[in-house]
């Protein structure tokens, strides 16, 4: 598989040279790295020439007003945007040095390594157990005891085990919204991805569930690399190590969360986090 994923070094270095602003944070610690990355929907330029890196084991928050391209960028990392017709990308987006948009890239394998949690909880209309086991079973037959262990561990990590251990065979549709979202996280964790993308995971949830998810993110940080898109500035400040601010498709500012929220360099960033627009 690695042979097919091998990056064309030439292309890589070319882009690196051409990209106007070199990413200040680019370094060996970055698991996902974008440089000069652009996304078009037809003629609409949704993400403009973005260069940033997600550091391994850290939580990176992506903030910005609606329609600024932050979700689009996130969805590009596991190529979820392939589902959108007329979506084109230029520039480089790499996972551990491997071009995500390489023509011979194995999308299925990529998505196993880059998990995703969506805005609205989307459990399958199956039992809780089957939901978590779904991704594991795709890989082929597995012993029942082994599978049980994986399911239990994933649910424990998602802080859901205690609530559902007695009704693993109940339909997931009957759970509350917060539980459903944690189930989705457990489902993503079950296939042990390296990167976990979260697209506004709390926007459809009540404050109590939101708090639980935030705790969960804090627990998972370190073990997984997490990228979270959020509208909620406090949330970004609370859970993330790094913050990227997107505005009209551009990456306006990127840096450590503490610095961004206390001493932003850019005026637009300042205006946004102080709530003047957005």
């Amino acid at each position: 598989m690695n042979a097919t994923l091998e990056i064309e070094k030439k292309k890589h270095s070319n882009i690196m040279k051409e990209s106007p602003e070199a990413n200040p944070k680019s370094g060996p610690g970055n698991i996902v790295e974008a440089s000069g990355f652009s996304v078009y929907y037809g003629k609409f330029h949704a993400v403009k020439n973005v260069s940033l890196g997600l550091e391994r084991g850290k939580v990176t928050a992506i903030i910005g007003p609606s329609g600024c391209g932050k979700s689009t960028f996130l969805r590009c990392i596991n190529r979820m945007n392939d589902l959108v017709e007329g979506c084109k990308t230029t520039g480089l987006l790499a996972l551990e040095g491997i071009d995500i948009y390489h023509p011979r890239l194995d999308v299925v394998e990529l998505r196993r390594r880059v998990g995703m949690v969506f805005q609205r909880p989307n459990p399958f209309p199956k039992s809780i157990y089957d939901n978590v086991a779904y991704g594991v079973r795709l890989k082929g037959a597995i012993r029942k005891s082994e599978l049980d262990d994986i399911v239990e561990m994933s649910l424990r990590r998602a802080a859901l085990w205690d609530e559902v251990k007695d009704r693993l065979n109940a339909n997931a549709i009957g759970m509350s919204g917060g539980q459903q979202q944690r189930l989705c996280i457990a489902r993503a964790l079950a296939i042990s991805p390296e990167v976990l993308l979260m697209d506004e995971p709390c926007s459809a949830l009540d404050p109590k569930s939101t708090a639980r998810i935030e705790d969960l993110i804090a627990e998972l940080a370190g073990e997984y690399t997490i990228a979270i898109v959020t509208h909620n500035m406090q949330q970004a400040a609370r859970v993330s190590d790094f913050t990227a601010f997107f505005y009209e498709g551009n990456l306006v500012e990127f840096g450590e969360t503490k610095i961004i929220f206390t001493n932003p360099k850019n005026k637009a960033t300042n205006d946004y986090i102080t709530g003047r627009f957005g």
Partner: peptide, 8 residues
């Protein structure tokens, strides 16, 4: 099941 079979 190998990935190859799934792809096939």
């Amino acid at each position: 099941m190998t990935t190859r079979t799934r792809k096939l």
